[in-house]
């Protein structure tokens, strides 16, 4: 067997594994390398056939099919039914504001409610439960969502991968990271930076986080300390515990790869 055929078999082995199970980080790197060598193959090469074979089993053998709990169905419907929520809310507000005497009362209640919502929003963002679902909701509901992949700025972090999503309208976002080394929270923490050159001369603190496991990708919410008008890029540094206001540390990762001008041009190594 020649070397090319060996590589192709290896690629097909990895593609068949990918269609049925999660790959290790090393296997993913190898797969990406081989896909570059064989561009006629795509990562989902075997996925349609395994998906259809899988569905076929449930369709042909009733013993395999389970029923989704009604409570979950109702929960999904109440959480993600956009076509109804808008219209019903509008109808309620329309009726209330048709009565002039209630208008001022309603305005006051709205103001109080908004304040409480802002507090709850902060709690929501710092609550690390169900982050994947919250991330999915942001992806689902934001029309101005931007997404960039992370790029390592030094060879020490070349195994890192993942992406960042952000909504300027929603003033929130999430980063997903794999391959970042674990940190000791008592000594240092990773810090997120948001680059908004139009509104801020320096990158804005997006919060600190810890990497407690290297076995699986980590999802982290971005908590901007200042309002962001238009995020142009993101960066991660390793700082003292609690984070800093202006970083003097080297950049570990940036998203996108190219650093936005007017923010990083003063120093190539610090932000």
């Amino acid at each position: 067997m020649d070397r090319t055929q060996e590589k192709l078999n290896k690629l097909l082995d990895l593609l068949s594994m990918r269609s049925c199970q999660s790959l290790t980080h090393i296997e993913e790197l190898e797969l990406n390398h081989l896909l570059d060598e064989f561009p006629e193959y795509t990562p989902d090469y075997f996925e349609p056939i395994t998906a259809l074979a899988d569905a076929s089993m449930y369709a042909h053998d009733e013993q395999n099919l389970s029923g989704m709990p009604e409570a979950l169905k109702n929960k999904i419907l109440s959480n993600f039914r956009p076509e109804y929520t808008g219209s019903s809310v509008l109808q309620v507000f329309k009726k209330i504001f048709e009565a002039p005497r209630l208008a001022w009362t309603m305005t006051c209640l709205l103001a109080i409610g908004t304040s409480i919502s802002m507090i709850e929003f902060r709690n929501y963002e710092t609550n690390y439960r169900n982050l994947s679902v919250k991330k999915a909701v942001l992806e689902f509901s934001s029309k101005d969502l931007i997404q960039y992949n992370w790029f390592a700025q030094t060879d020490d972090f070349c195994d890192c991968s993942g992406n960042v999503i952000w909504s300027d309208d929603g003033q929130r976002g999430f980063i997903t990271l794999a391959g970042l080394p674990m940190n000791d929270p008592s000594e240092n923490q990773y810090q997120i930076w948001i680059v908004d050159p139009k509104m801020h001369a320096n990158p804005v603190d997006g919060g600190v986080f810890n990497i407690t496991s290297i076995d699986s990708p980590t999802v982290i919410p971005i908590n901007p300390k200042l309002p962001i008008e238009k995020a142009r890029g993101f960066a991660i540094t390793l700082e003292q515990s609690g984070g800093v206001v202006i970083s003097e540390q080297s950049l570990i990762l940036t998203a996108p790869k190219e650093r936005p001008q007017s923010t990083y041009d003063n120093s190539s190594a610090s932000i």
Partner: peptide, 8 residues
């Protein structure tokens, strides 16, 4: 949680 993500 995962089923919710899938449906979205």
């Amino acid at each position: 949680d995962a089923v919710q993500e899938v449906m979205i």
